[in-house]
Structures are given as structure tokens and as C-alpha cells.
Amino acid sequence: MFVSNIEEIPGKTITTCYGIVSGSTVRAKHLGRDIFASVKNIFGGELKGYTELLGESRDEALDRMKSQAQQLGANAIVNVRFSTSSVAAGAAEIYVYGTAVTVE
């Protein structure tokens, strides 16, 4: 599965377009991590737990998008965009969408 955030997959030609595909996930860390993060917030620095959380969420959202594209019969996704929002406090919500295409 080719994924890019530009209009095309370089070196390939797009033959068929299937429309928008998307993947989303909402994940949270357990309370202990939340408490640790708020303590860490006093001193500053990287919040490893949350970095990890966002990474996991992004991977899962990408996987879901790819699986959707596969179901449509596409072999590439172009013009991919990530967006985040916060619906639940303390949870990472990742949304990724793009255009499913077949390239040759």
C-alpha cells in the first residue's frame, strides 16, 4: 500500500480513483499515566506516555484507513491528511483521511 500526502505517488500513474477513505481512533492512557503526566507538567519536558499514546493512535488510524482502501480494491492512498481533536479529556483522537486510488 503506497501512502503519500501529495497528489500522486511519484513514478506511478493513477488509473482509478475510489473516493475518500478514512481511519480514526480514540485512545487513552490509564489513570496512573495521566497523574504522572500532570506531575511532569510542573517540570516540563517530554511526556513519554502521551508521545507513545499519540504514536499508537496514529498507527492504528493509518491501519484502519489502509484496510478500508484495500476493501475498495485500491493499492495506494494519496493526499493523506491527519487531524486531531479532543472529544474526551485525556484521550488522543486521531483522524486520517485520503483518496484511495489504483496506481500502475
Binding site: 475510489y18 473516493g19 480494491g73
Partner: peptide, 9 residues
């Protein structure tokens, strides 16, 4: 480029 309408199962 063709458009092939389809929905995921």
C-alpha cells in the same frame, strides 16, 4: 483516470 464508485464492506 476512472472513477469507480464503491463502498467498503
Amino acid at each position: 483516470m476512472n472513477y469507480q464508485p464503491s463502498l467498503p464492506e
